[in-house]
Design a protein around this nucleic acid. Structure first.
Lengths: 315, 315
DNA sequence: CAACTACATTAGCGTTGCTGATGCTCAACC
DNA sequence: GGTTGAGCATCAGCAACGCTAATGTAGTTG
């Protein structure tokens, strides 16, 4: 197997025309150059240069090897340059998956920031539920996933981030959505138990959110009377506005508020889902992914700031 | 600087999908593979593979490096193959220079044999005088030179083969060319001194052959009376046939004998020039050149056989 | 819980690939 | 004709490389 370092020495020898000059150019000793070329000749079994009084000249075999060496060394430099570009975020790609409401709220500003910082990284974003995103990360299908999970869900089943490296971004509280003219709108310090006789609108009963709503209601002493199910929170809002029932909606899904809906936080605290960003475990997190995690953390912090100043406790 | 052996290991790892499988494929230990990849990652500063339960998968940086590695390794294999081809005389070229009469007599059968043995070596032949051929060998302009030189010429000037590796092929005797009806044609045991009153035709006075003729005549006690000079031995024969004078002509230049010319060898011995094949000195003689030297030796031996059986002593 | 299979780590040892010193050859120059 | 200088070769020494063999660690499987 040829040795790139030796090829480089050989090339320098030919271009310089002498071992000594090549040694100077490479900051080697003449001895090292001599030994390198001798070893190359031993490996190839061919005389590569003819030794002359004033230096050396390539033989035919040497000229042939040199021709290839130029190509090989150019290729090697190109490879190193492209790796450096990826590491320096001047190239490469980043594939991100997000749950729907995260993709609508957190991702747009994060994508904008990331693109501004690293315009040459090709960014793709797909949406899906956490239980789909986890496997896609594990399979290497995407590099980064925006997930949520509910505390205690590990009892009910596998958490989507199991086997992944997940970083907590924020806690997304679930608020009560009431029809605008609902009698409880004016009540301060609304408790979940106050809603025990309401009809409920929620996401499909197998979804983590719905399971968590039911679990929380049961903790408050009642089983929710589910009047309707929809996995789209805009539809849920429409149903609430139409008076079909009340709902617990994550704050991230309330970025667009239906005019016929009033949002109230719960006392003593709203149930909440934990939003995390997950990658494959281990040290092998791509620079682009690492950078995006940082961006997402900033965006999440900003989101928490804004959320604190607009807490819909009483309105 | 990248290392081709490590790149090969890395490629095998990716294609096999695990360190252990790659180790088996390469007849290495799993440890060696692990260390190779770890070193490659340290050198590039990038995680190249993600370690998984069932093996490994390349990261983006790894996939990029792999793409380049395929090219580089292919190039390297091509280089090795081409070198092997040259060494095995299945490729390459050979540039030969010859003095004119050697080019007409010795080279044609040598070229024919060489081409039959190594049809894929590109062969070129140029003609010139020995004093031009020597520098062309030294400058690397040609690989092999067919030369002649006269014993004792080192006193008169620089021999063309100085500083070269010259192998003796044959001694080419110079015979006397007489007009067919010349009175000395019937004389047996012709001596050079018998020609002291003749007029002479010879090559130009600065040429080694002419110098040698003059020197030999002086050794025999007379200065030749030069009636005409021509560097073309066919012209010399024509002049001799026309009765302009007599001439000393090397046997190699007598392959085509003019009908009006009779050739006689001299007693006690004809003066002769030494025909050699020369290359650059040192061990770096190309395989093609080495092979051609062997072919020329065979051709020269055959020529000596034929010459012995047709010695024109008396006719 | 044990066995299996993956990669990681470590010690050991021969090889590689430098440096620095020395030797050799040839050409040029007193 | 001896000295000097420029070139390559060679050698000892030493650090780094790159392998093997043995062992460690983690997750999966029976």
């Amino acid at each position: 197997m040829l040795n790139l370092a030796r090829l480089q020495v050989f090339r320098e020898v030919v271009t310089c025309g002498s071992f000594s000059a090549a040694a100077d150019a490479l900051s080697y000793t003449q001895s090292a150059v001599s030994q390198s070329v001798a070893r190359l000749e031993a490996e190839t079994g061919a005389a590569l240069v003819v030794r002359d009084r004033k230096g050396v000249r390539p033989t035919e075999a040497g000229a042939t090897l040199l021709r290839h060496a130029e190509l090989i060394l150019t290729q090697a430099r190109a490879a190193e340059a492209e790796l450096d570009a990826i590491l320096g975020l001047r190239a490469g790609r980043l594939r991100v998956a997000s749950f729907p409401s995260g993709g609508e709220t957190l991702m747009p500003p994060a994508v904008a920031r990331f693109r501004r910082a690293h315009p040459e990284v090709a960014l793709t974003l797909v949406e899906g539920e956490p239980e789909e995103i986890g496997p896609r990360i594990r399979s290497g299908d995407v590099d980064l996933g925006l997930l949520y999970e509910f505390p205690g869900a590990h009892r009910a089943g596998l958490r989507p981030s199991v086997g992944l490296r997940a970083r907590r971004l924020l806690d997304d509280p679930m608020h009560v959505a009431l029809p605008a003219e609902h009698p409880l709108v004016g009540v301060s310090r609304l408790r979940l138990a106050d809603l025990c006789h309401e009809q409920w609108v929620q996401t499909s009963s197998t979804s983590p959110c719905a399971r968590h709503v039911v679990r929380t209601c049961l903790d408050s002493g009642f089983a929710p009377d589910v009047a309707f199910e929809s996995d789209d929170y805009d539809t849920v809002q429409g149903l609430v506005a139409a008076g079909v029932g009340v709902a617990l909606i994550p704050q991230l899904a309330l970025s667009r508020l239906h005019s016929g809906v009033v949002v109230r936080s719960l006392t003593p605290s709203s149930p909440s889902r934990r939003v995390t960003v997950a990658t494959l475990p281990g040290a092998g997190v791509a620079p682009a992914a690492r950078s995006m995690i940082q961006v997402l953390s900033d965006v999440a912090a900003r989101h928490r700031e804004r959320a604190r100043s607009t807490d819909p406790a009483v309105d």
